[in-house]
Design a protein around this nucleic acid. Sequence first.
RNA 1: GCGCCCGUAGCUCAGCGGAUAGAGCACCCGCCUCCUAAGCGGGGGGCCGCCGGUUCAAUUCCGGCCGGGCGCGCCA
Length: 665
Amino acid sequence: MILTVQRLVHTAITDAMRRQYPGVDIPPFVVEVPPNRALGDLAVTVAFQLARPLRKAPKVIAQEVADALGAIPGIARLVVAPNGYLNLYLDRPAFIRPRMRGEVAGLPATPEKTVVEHTAINPNKAAHIGHLRNAALGDTLARVLRFRGGPVEVQNYIDDTGVQVADVIVGFRELERKSIDDVRRIAETTRFDYYCWDLYSRVTEWYAEDSARLEVRAAALHELEHGGTPVSELGALIVDRIVRAHLRTMARLNVSYDLLTYEGDILRLKFWAHAFDILKAQGAVFLQTEGKLAGCWVMRIEAAGTPAVEAEGGDDGGPDNREKVIVRSNGVVTYVGKDIANQFWKFGLLGRDFRYKRFMTQHTGQTLWATTSADSDPAAPPFGRASRIFNVIDSRQMYLQALLSQALRTLGHPREAENSVHFSYEMVALSHATARELGYPPDDDENRKPFVEVSGRKGLGVKVDDMLDLLAAKAAKEVAARNPEFTADECGRVAAQIAVAAIRYFMLKFSRGKLIVFDIEEALSFEGETGPYLQYAAVRAHNILQKLKEREGISEADVLAALDGLACDELSGAGDGTHDLWALTLEASRLDEVVETVIRSLEFAALAKYAFGLAQLFSAFYHKYPIVNEEDRDRKLWRAAGVAYFRAQLTRALALMGIEVPARM
RNA sequence: GCGCCCGUAGCUCAGCGGAUAGAGCACCCGCCUCCUAAGCGGGGGGCCGCCGGUUCAAUUCCGGCCGGGCGCGCCA
């Protein structure tokens, strides 16, 4: 879209400077889009940067560069601003026509495979708003990477052998005295993830009453890990039903996956044992024989400030030798160990592979695969073997994620270590008002903080499905009021799309380093900077084009075909001097540039803000300029083309955020 | 104590080397015989936490403070 032109200009200016100032180092510079159209469409500040080495005024340099610069295709004129900016004005019709027609190719795709791991909710309770941030970020990351080109594989890690699952097992067996058949029946007749949500917090209280009861958990966990017992069978049932509930919730949000990776398979297929051999052989882990960690296999930690126990020996003033336990003295591997094995597998460095089975067909029609320890489906595609991995996990997991890179580096895989990315973000907490609404009056301690922490263990959190239901109910009312001719079914469908837009946009509009204090009231808003506002803009654009077709028989194809023969006043602003149509379409063309920035910074708030700004530009345009009712044919068609282009680009931007545009709303 | 993150309008947040620091919400004033008012226009409201440094240029980069959050287990 616009990137091709920016690169062209960059090259031309670089060449001009090389000719003009032979022997002078050309500093790196960028071709930016100035704050408003009066200042041009593109701007370069390289004259400022050259002022010192050339010992000349920026304005003089800018003029010299301008003089040395021949005609650049697509650039109508170049202005040297009094302060030294080089401002470029595009040949507007020549720029926008092929883009409106979708004739401009994007940048070449990268052939390297990327694995994105996200969601990874403990399969023992309903998904809450904290999990939602993870999934929204992870899914958007996958969409953005696919937009840019190149294969992307989305994995969802299922910790089916962890304490959290053990806790729910304990709940069913000890608190409720349920048999596996009872549990199966409960799963069939209730919202099972909600049921377990409550049970889990009851188990937590049950432990708190008598710490000796933790022995029960330990025993359940042990059976879960080793399998072949009624406890592990119950665990498998719980996990399966909860995972399916999570997938249903995620499907509502337009989130899908390629592969479910089960921790149990990592154990059963001896991934860890194999990884352990590699780590030992390379000396990445060693058996500690002294001190507190005697009997443990440990890894030296390089990252400064990394937690762990200091090594034995006089360490006064010595280097900070810290160690992280990988295998406990009782021989049980820690979660770090399992994660290292998994990370190695994702890069194809483990020398082992999972076995695979079809898990289900998703709402997209695409097959979701799962790992298995039984026979593999020969039709399974190749998984893993990535060149780049994004692990979407909140910032609290920083050290563990750093360890993964370190393990890769230690074992001689510096490139993989570099491409092992912790996609980190801050957590989601609850506002006091929302916590109160959920029936948790904040105690004095919590009152001192501006927020209340979400806690699955305490059962404190906003469930994703509840939030979606609330949003959809509110949206349905609005949709019904505005579209009396809609059936209940249509209303429901559109309301669901609006609900997803509201919540996904809300999760994306904050930069990832920002803690979100989630407030139900705030998230329920459909006005201002919200997902529904964006959808509304696209819907109105769509309506204009619909009306044009219905009333005058002018299709979008007709509009595009007519462009070549039209006077361009409307686009160049020659009439009343305004540049609104141009401002709108130029901004719409920036999507590819924005995506590049987003991938570089991993900051989706930039994408969200861009889409919002674009929608605002359109909304203002919509009010100011008639299209269906415009009498001047050339103006009318240019505007219509602009509206069509806006709609196409905004729709693409929204799709990157997993937001759909309803036909009406 | 060490590490990471945050500190910008009343509130929630963008901007993160460059041209007058922006948006949403809230508040006030306007706008629906005309393509959906989930909208548009206008208004008030800012020592960009503080102190230094680098730079032609710092809200933006660097250092030091101050304030807040998170992490620091033979849990995951």
